[in-house]
């Protein structure tokens, strides 16, 4: 135990304070301690500067036009050394605290539970070791999907990857943040110590709907987590229709309903096998058309939806996935 772990315990609190959201991870208190250390040092320096400026300005104001001041020294090596060295000492301390904390937070413990997070414009997708997966994105002001589930009190490492541009994975309550860089892995780890839901932000600008690339992390007890994992585990023996339904509810329900109502895109129930008006003609909705719409949505747009182009899912859905979704859509007609 080092010196400031002790001090940080004094600062430990679960509720929101003026500057920070609640400390929902084990490391949060350390960061907050470093913050308050720098804060009070800076505050002292700032007050000194303000007071000195104000007092000098008032005390030595020019009372008469053309007044010349009395003589005073123009330089002093001694004082120059003092005000260079003293701040330097504090800065060395700041660096050291920051460095220790950083090293700890960049080194996931070996026993960490690993979850994969995949970022794409503009959603997060989480995959768990047992094959369960969950999504989290926002549309029409609502959080869609389920977000990230993590067990309380366990070291969790999130492996981050991106399928398009730079994103950044940030959970303010856990005090973690890491850029998601296409073409390689990055990671964060944390140990959640507070039950509840906390926001996940994308903090690296990633295009039009950057502000909507939101999700939630749900901290649940270990038992609940085990139950959730089991419920969401993908059954390899499930029928294509069931697999397709799972995928559809995760990937498509933000824009497409299956109850006949129009969301951002048209409703998709009862459409398979029918003829649809598209821009520049008509088309029969068959396997080919569904495939094309998923991979290259702007090729044939249904009349009335010209202004809300769908984003391509090329690279996100495999051929198997697409045929499963097709099977599901087919089942909605029969």
């Amino acid at each position: 135990m080092n010196m400031y772990t002790l001090l940080s315990m004094m600062l430990q609190h679960q509720k929101e304070d003026f500057f920070f959201p609640s400390q929902a991870s084990a490391n949060a208190a350390t960061v907050d301690f470093i913050f308050y250390f720098i804060f009070y040092v800076s505050l002292f320096a700032f007050i000194t500067i303000v007071l000195a400026t104000a007092i000098f300005a008032w005390r030595y104001r020019r009372s008469k036009v053309g007044m010349t001041p009395e003589d005073s020294p123009h330089h002093s090596t001694r004082i120059e050394i003092v005000w260079s060295v003293v701040p330097s000492i504090f800065m060395v301390m700041m660096f050291w605290y920051g460095f220790e904390d950083f090293t700890e937070r960049r080194t996931p413990p070996a026993d960490s539970y690993e979850i994969h997070a995949k970022a794409s414009k503009w959603q997060w997708e989480f995959e768990y070791p047992n094959g369960a997966s969950s999504f989290g994105f926002i549309d029409a002001g609502e959080y869609q999907g389920k977000g990230l589930f993590v067990p309380l009190g366990k070291n969790v490492r999130i492996r981050l990857e991106s399928s398009d541009v730079l994103h950044s994975f940030s959970i303010p309550n856990f005090r973690v943040k890491m850029d998601v860089v296409p073409g390689r892995y990055t990671d964060v780890w944390f140990n959640a110590i507070e039950l509840g839901d906390f926001p996940i932000f994308c903090t690296e600008y990633c295009g039009t709907k950057h502000s909507r690339m939101l999700s939630k992390v749900h901290v649940v007890s270990e038992e609940d987590f085990a139950v959730w994992l089991k419920e969401n585990q993908e059954d390899p023996n499930a029928s294509p229709v069931d697999k397709g339904k799972r995928l559809f509810s995760a990937k498509c329900t933000a824009c497409h309903a299956v109850d006949g109502s129009t969301k951002i895109g048209p409703a998709l129930n009862g459409k398979y096998g029918t003829i649809e008006n598209i821009v520049g003609g008509t088309v029969t909705i068959d396997d080919n058309y569904i495939r094309r719409s998923i991979l290259d949505p702007s090729a044939d747009i249904v009349v009335g939806f010209e202004n809300v182009p769908m984003t391509s899912f090329a690279g996100q859905l495999s051929d198997d996935d697409i045929s499963n979704i097709t099977a599901y859509l087919k089942s909605l007609t029969e």
């Binding site: 350390t30 960061v31 470093i34 913050f35 720098i38 700041m94 950083f102």
Partner: peptide, 12 residues
């Protein structure tokens, strides 16, 4: 700027 030069706080 000191908060942003310090590794621990800059991450936040």
């Amino acid at each position: 700027g000191l908060f942003l030069a310090t590794l621990g706080t800059d991450v936040v």
